[in-house]
Nucleic acid binder design. Structure first.
Lengths: 210, 210
DNA sequence: CCTGCGCAGTAACAATGGTTACAGAAGGAT
DNA sequence: ATCCTTCTGTAACCATTGTTACTGCGCAGG
């Protein structure tokens, strides 16, 4: 844990802070597809991502869901706190998009560390900035774009975070993330294939020229 | 300015911080409909709202817009900072929904004060929490609700912040805020009137039983 | 008083996306 | 091989929302 932390965060956190994190943090290694944060764990921690990609989803009371954004290494998710403080009528889910390593930090340390460590303060502020901006992009795409544009954006972003132009998702998976339906996604993907932008296969697809 | 500040913020900020704010802040009194934040002003300040209501809108490159949320007294908008730091392909607009009083604080003080004053730190963190939650609600409504539900939510929220069941908006105004079209809004409002939930008039409408 | 403009009502139509239903292909398990 | 499940393709249809076009009303300014 210590070497992982130092590698990823050594240049931004003071050594004493690194030490404190090692004291109270829990190291977790999670496989792809792992549902990271249970409602129970929720209030207890703030994740510091060491490697891999975590996707953060919004879920409403009917089980409808929508991809908010991906967390990559070096990211944290201040939102996990923001949400549980607010009303709990709808929820956030976090799922490992790839195998991932992370450290959970108990939320009680937040206030202490923001007082004590400038680097932590900046880190948390930056995290908020980034999450806000990502939320705004997501909102833009839902509010202003049509499904075909959203789909293209989704495929590009997914290829970017996984560093792979082969996307291992079924049409149904994509439909869930975009809060659409399987038939609609199949229809649009077919069009993209006809335009030569992608190549479809069973259980995965290839980006060619997006 | 000092008495306004003390009334609204005296119980949460230390006296020394209040003093500092008085030194560097600019007091502004703006009328309803005033476009608060120009792109030029943008980077320079963070608003502390003393009284009144400010609405915050998202705008994309084509001029489409969408109401994000309202700021009320005691609120600030950490997002104004978050946005200008990010890519500027789309923008935030802020318009006075009612007459409002506020203090603009230069953004350069942010870092200094977050180090120096615990109350300021907490204030800014709380603001982030609130904005994140409001953004999530907005996203929920855009992603998961149909236009009729969104319209009802909009009318209720607007009545709440203005403390008035008479809403002085044209159908076109409402359409802009919800990123819809005038005809669609007229249609839905008519239905609400037929259901006895509202009463329509020229240039304004009355909430009866929403 | 008349005129013009902004606002609201309405109809007809288009486009987008969601739903249902069914068929067939791929691949794994036995 | 056979069976079964999952995934994909496709058609037909529906609901919601957006668009265009035209009407008439009310109010302000000349």
């Amino acid at each position: 844990m210590i070497q992982n932390l130092t590698e990823e965060y050594g240049n931004i956190f003071e050594p004493e802070l690194i030490n404190e994190i090692v004291q109270v943090g829990t190291f977790k290694e999670v496989p792809e597809g792992y549902k990271l944060i249970e409602i129970g764990d929720y209030l207890r921690g703030m994740p510091l991502l060491i490697s891999g990609v975590i996707k953060i989803l919004r879920e409403d009371e009917d089980g409808d869901e929508l991809l908010l954004y991906y967390l990559e290494k070096g990211d944290t998710c201040s939102m996990t706190m923001a949400c549980c403080i607010g009303d709990a009528k709808s929820e956030i889910r976090a799922i490992a998009e790839t195998d991932a390593k992370l450290i959970m930090v108990p939320i009680q340390k937040m206030e202490e560390w923001t007082t004590k460590y400038k680097s932590w303060r900046n880190f948390v502020f930056n995290s908020y900035h980034e999450r806000l901006n990502e939320l705004l992009s997501t909102l833009d795409s839902v509010a202003f774009q049509k499904m075909d544009e959203r789909l293209i954006g989704y495929l590009k972003e997914k290829a970017r975070v996984t560093k792979n132009d082969i996307i291992h998702s079924t049409h149904q998976d994509i439909a869930y993330d975009l809060h659409s339906s399987r038939v609609v996604i199949s229809r649009l993907l077919k069009k993209l294939e006809e335009m030569g932008k992608i190549k479809l296969h069973r259980n995965y697809l290839e980006l060619l020229d997006l």
